[in-house]
Computed example of a mutant assay.
Amino acid sequence: MTERTPTSMDLLDFPGAAELVAAGDVTPPSAGTVGGAWEGVARAAKEERATTPLAPPAHLPPVRVRRARRLLVAAAAVAAIATGAVAYPVLDMGGEPAATASASQFFEGMAEVAEDAPATTPAYWKVRVETDNQDDGKRTDTSYFDREGRIWSVDADGTVHEPPAGEEGKVKKWPVGKKWLTWPDLENLPTDEKALAARFPKDPHSRFDQVTIMLEDSPAGPELRAALFRLLADTPGMKLVGDVRDSKGRAGVAVEITQKSWVRLGEDKNAGAGTGTETGKDITLRTKDRYVIAPDTGLLLETTHKTLGQDTKADRYTWLEVGPADRVE
Rank of each mutant, 00 (worst) to 15 (best):
R286L: 05
V129N: 03
D141I: 14
A220S: 13
P6W: 10
R66F: 04
E112Q: 14
K248N: 13
E168W: 08
T131P: 00
H205W: 01
A37S: 06
T5N: 12
A98V: 13
Y144W: 15
I283F: 02
T258C: 03
W125L: 03
A226W: 07
P201N: 05
Y88A: 04
S102K: 00
M238T: 07
G298E: 09
K170F: 13
P56F: 08
K138L: 15
D135C: 01
V65D: 11
I213Y: 04
T5Q: 15
R264A: 11
V78E: 02
E302S: 03
D209V: 08
P6F: 09
K194L: 11
I81E: 14
L299I: 00
S8E: 12
W319V: 08
G36C: 04
L224Q: 06
E302G: 02
A50G: 01
T120P: 00
E216F: 09
E115K: 13
F107G: 00
T277A: 14
L320P: 02
I257P: 01
A117P: 03
G272R: 07
R286Y: 14
V160W: 07
D243N: 06
K281Q: 10
E193A: 14
R316N: 11
L231C: 01
R66I: 00
A22C: 05
T303K: 10
S102E: 15
A99C: 08
Q210P: 04
L224K: 05
W152R: 01
T235V: 07
V292W: 04
D209R: 11
R43E: 14
G177E: 14
Y317R: 13
T307D: 09
D203K: 06
G24M: 11
T318Y: 07
R286P: 00
E168L: 14
I283N: 02
P324G: 02
R147A: 13
G272S: 05
E48A: 09
A87N: 02
D141H: 06
G252A: 07
M1D: 01
V63K: 09
D135F: 14
H205E: 08
Y291R: 03
E3D: 09
A156R: 10
F229I: 01
T83M: 12
V322L: 10
G149Q: 05
L240M: 06
L60M: 11
Y124L: 09
